[in-house]
């Protein structure tokens, strides 16, 4: 078994967060039946699945020429009316025939890419995980990002985002557990240019919940990355209090309340999140940053009160 995907995450280009009804509108731009939403514990809306037909080379660590034909499964989602994600994945399967079949064959198996010839799973998995500079191979991130672009271009958005932020890329690879290895395995790595890789070993095989998990992780990684940049730019201790607070304000207004790891996930994924909480320790780092932001804002408020003669 080999499943590979990429999630790109960015700030929805609107001045404020958008209500659930508007989420329906912006995600409804993508073709398909209807936008699914849930309200608790956080407003979440996801587009219908999008299928993209591909016939192209797949990256492989050995640089062997591997051709794959099939469809990529993608979707776009908005969390908290604020964070936009574009997510694509494929399941790799061995082609039964040695030539390309009619598209109806591939369309009947959404999200499956059939590869010709003999391939080794680790070769494809490693190739995909660091396929950054490969221009001629299947680029799942770009496929998903197109759908993000459609959403960002919606006339329902005012394009006046409260701060600038880069989109992050989480590339993930899931393989089945091998005999002799215990329990679920997870490895998360920070790479250059806002690329992250996630390696999963799944004892129970692949279910669509795995995609939810990867999207949830990508969302929180983006939150943390973005807050780190905001705090760094605020120049705490160097800039004036007013400047620091002005730089931190967008974080308070738009980000701090969005942190809810694993909130929408099946309990089966709790161990994976727990592993990430131990190392690299997402929530620990997040909480320490949040405390710093709140302290700075509080100190500035006190200073203002004192100046106003209230104290």
């Amino acid at each position: 078994m080999l499943v590979m995907g990429e999630v790109r995450t960015g700030l929805l280009q609107n001045s404020g967060e958008i209500p659930e009804s508007l989420c329906q509108g912006v995600l409804g731009l993508l073709s398909g039946e209807r936008v699914r939403t849930s309200r608790r514990p956080i407003v979440y809306a996801v587009s219908p699945d999008q299928l993209t037909g591909v016939d192209c080379r797949l990256a492989s660590a050995s640089r062997a020429r591997v051709r794959g034909v099939g469809t990529v499964l993608s979707r776009a989602s908005v969390t908290g009316g604020r964070v936009l994600q574009g997510s694509s994945h494929i399941q790799v399967a061995r082609a039964e025939s040695d030539h390309r079949l009619s598209w109806s064959h591939y369309l009947a198996r959404p999200g499956v890419i059939e590869v010709f010839g003999k391939v080794r799973v680790p070769d494809l998995a490693d190739g995909f995980a660091d396929s950054g500079g490969w221009n001629d191979c299947l680029d799942l991130g770009s496929v998903g990002e197109r759908f993000m672009d459609v959403v960002q271009a919606s006339p329902l958005l005012d394009r006046k985002a409260p701060f600038r932020s880069a989109r992050t890329r989480l590339r993930w690879v899931a393989v089945a557990e091998e005999p002799g290895r215990e329990g679920p395995g997870i490895r998360f790595t920070l790479g250059r240019d806002r690329v992250r890789t996630l390696r999963l070993v799944l004892p129970d095989g692949f279910t669509p919940d795995v995609v939810d998990f990867c999207e949830d992780l990508a969302l929180h990684d983006w939150l943390l990355t973005t807050l780190l940049v905001i705090v760094e730019r605020a120049r705490v201790g160097t800039a004036t209090r007013a400047e620091v607070t002005a730089k931190l304000a967008p974080a308070v207004d738009h980000l701090l309340h969005l942190w809810m790891p694993a909130a929408r996930l099946d309990d089966d994924f709790a161990p994976l999140w727990e592993a990430l909480e131990r190392r690299p320790g997402f929530t620990r780092q997040w909480q320490s940053l949040v405390a710093r932001v709140r302290d700075q804002v509080a100190i500035n408020t006190l200073a203002l009160l004192r100046e106003a003669g209230g104290w």
């Binding site: 960002q152 271009a153 932020s165 880069a166």
Partner: peptide, 12 residues
Amino acid sequence: VRLFTRLEEEFD
């Protein structure tokens, strides 16, 4: 158009 839209998200 796509390039400008994406960069506008990230850069002042």
